[in-house]
Amino acid sequence: MNWKKWYRECALCPRECGVNRLEGRRGFCGQTAGLKVARAALHMWEEPCISGTRGSGTVFFTGCHLGCVFCQNGQISRGGAGKEISIIRLAHIFMELQEKGAHNINLVTPTHFVPQIIEALRISKKMGLVLPVVYNTGGFEKVDTLELLDGWVDVYLTDFKFMDVHLSKRYAHEEGYSFYAAKALEEMYRQTGPSAFDENGMMTKGIIVRHMVLPGQSMDSRQIIDYLYENYGDEIYLSLMNQYTPSGSLEKYPELKKRVKRQVYERLIQYTIRKGVENAFIQEGDTAKESFIPDFDGEGV
């Protein structure tokens, strides 16, 4: 693959900014063609079939093409934390995570660097990489970009953040979010099919769709649950998350300055059960009070 051609008029994500990132121009994601990584380490805070007992080999990429106003990873999505590295170095990072005992290679917010990631995977597989590859995304994807990943990604760990176009426009500056998320999910399922697990219960193939419940938006959450189950049944896994924590500058969004009430989340769990969903992850206890955000200090880069 001639990876550079994808950056001359960048259209890797649905925003299709069209900027020449090879010349240092930046589109919505805020990144040039320089491959930038903020952290590469074992991570225990994913779903149990991803983190397991040894941890998921997460690689956090700098930048984001979605830009949610409540983003809890603002240090890397908009703050620019991270170090520019080569494709060869990324391949070596994959190998180092495998040597540390990672259950998988977990690519976090990778969309705007897909061509280079594929090249790094090509190199690392020649070096002996055998771990499943997890594509960890906000769900705002183009089918054309996902098609490049066919055969390279084993597990899609994707968000479905909003169904309502007004919500996505207000909170992510993109009223077409649900359209793209639905089309992306179709392509992900075409590639992986139903989920598969190894003898230790680790997912080796398939899809987990995350939905983080937002304060005051349980109706939108129900619509997302309906859509996922009616279209995919239990052939994909739902991860219903209650960990929303007010973060960032929310002066214009006072409705987001509170956490989701436990009763609201529990009612959504019951709704999910009544719907018939069996393959789902839920969060118990005071997860909204815990920190799922690591230090983006350049570890492992």
Rank of each mutant, 00 (worst) to 15 (best):
R26P: 08
Y237V: 15
S218V: 12
N73L: 14
V134I: 11
K125I: 13
E175H: 02
V69A: 11
L148S: 04
Q191F: 07
S249L: 08
G298E: 03
A41S: 11
G193A: 07
F197K: 00
L90T: 15
F60C: 07
P132R: 05
R274M: 11
E187C: 11
G27Q: 04
S247P: 03
Q263D: 12
G206Y: 02
S178L: 05
L250F: 09
F28M: 11
D226T: 05
T62W: 08
S249V: 11
A41D: 14
A33G: 00
L228E: 00
T32S: 08
T137Y: 00
H92I: 14
C10A: 01
G27K: 01
G233R: 07
V260R: 03
V260C: 07
R267V: 15
A11L: 06
S218R: 01
T137P: 00
A172S: 15
K169L: 15
P110T: 09
A280P: 04
E84S: 11
G34D: 13
K252N: 13
F296K: 03
D150C: 15
V108T: 10
R190T: 08
V165G: 01
R21Y: 10
W45Q: 07
E46D: 10
G74Q: 13
Y227P: 05
S195Q: 01
V301Y: 02
N104T: 03
K125L: 11
L12I: 13
K169H: 12
V213G: 07
I236G: 00
R78Y: 13
Y244H: 00
F162I: 10
D154Y: 09
I118D: 07
I293M: 04
K169P: 09
L250A: 05
R190D: 12
